[in-house]
């Protein structure tokens, strides 16, 4: 059972709101003081899913691919520490400023370059941009079947049974390999790496890949190839102060609360 997991390094999603800052002019999130970037939590779950598939099959490999700046190496290293075999880092200035499309394009080429495995796994979305589309685009580019937002994955090379989280329940899907899967938080917690593995991972070489290595022109990737254009990035102004719903009777207060929730589009 061979797997490739695509992972991304992102600012820690557990950064407290008070420490979260955006540089609106540069349209980027400012790193919070003292808070290190982390592997996107859904991606760590995807690595976990791949490792469990490999363990269940008793053989195979789990390789990691990540596109991003220097810090992406840490996401790869974390995955290696969890038990993945090898890491590949799509690392080049040309990749910068891309969108879901260029990321998926580069990843799909890299996967072809490495050889399409039995299963390609993603987190359901990168917890920074929250687009949740790269996995599906890769599936489309590689013309593979896909199943998204999964809470369970079982089976081996040939065919997998997966459970997909949908609005009103769960769907069981039979999917042939090779295929693309995206893993959701319902899958459960990823393992905490053992120190020995962290140290081994630290020593392991991570291969770097440039656009040329995977058969792409610099103009096809990064900002140059992007299909989405960002116009603004800002922090929503939230009312810091609590709004106490007043009313003469409990009924009035309850009705007031429901109305307020509706207005705020929370319900």
């Amino acid at each position: 059972m061979d797997a490739i997991v695509c992972v991304k390094q992102i600012p820690d999603p557990e950064t407290p709101a008070a420490a979260f800052r955006v540089d609106e002019a540069a349209m980027r999130v400012l790193p919070a003081q003292g808070i290190s970037p982390v592997i996107s939590p859904f991606d760590a779950q995807a690595v976990e899913a791949a490792l469990r598939l490999k363990d269940a099959a008793g053989e195979g490999s789990v390789n990691i691919v990540s596109l991003g700046p220097d810090s992406a190496r840490d996401a790869i290293k974390h995955s290696l520490a969890m038990g993945a075999d090898d890491g590949y880092h799509l690392h080049d200035d040309a990749f910068e400023g891309g969108d879901a499309w260029t990321t998926a394009l580069a990843l799909s080429k890299a996967i072809q370059h490495l050889g399409v495995p039995d299963v390609i796994l993603f987190g359901r979305q990168a917890a920074d941009w929250d687009q949740g589309s790269v996995g599906s685009i890769v599936a489309e580019l590689l013309d593979l079947p896909s199943a998204t937002v999964l809470r369970a994955v079982e089976g081996g090379a040939g065919s997998l049974t997966v459970s997909r989280v949908v609005g009103d329940g769960f769907e069981t899907i039979e999917i042939p390999t090779p295929c693309v899967l995206t893993i959701s938080n319902e899958f459960g917690d990823p393992r905490y790496p053992q120190l020995r593995q962290i140290m081994q991972a630290a020593r392991k070489q991570v291969a770097e890949l440039t656009p040329a290595d995977i058969g792409l022109e610099p103009s096809q990737v990064g900002a140059a190839g992007a299909r989405l254009e960002m116009h603004a990035l800002f922090q929503p102004t939230s009312d810091v102060d609590v709004e106490i719903i007043e009313g003469d009777t409990p009924e009035e207060k309850a009705a007031g609360l429901v109305a307020a929730l509706r207005n705020a589009k929370i319900l």
């Binding site: 955006v22 999130v29 989405l228 116009h231």
Partner: peptide, 12 residues
């Protein structure tokens, strides 16, 4: 985006 901490304006 960013888990609700930020808003992004984009066009396709």
């Amino acid at each position: 985006c960013y888990g609700g901490n930020a808003r992004q304006v984009v066009t396709v």
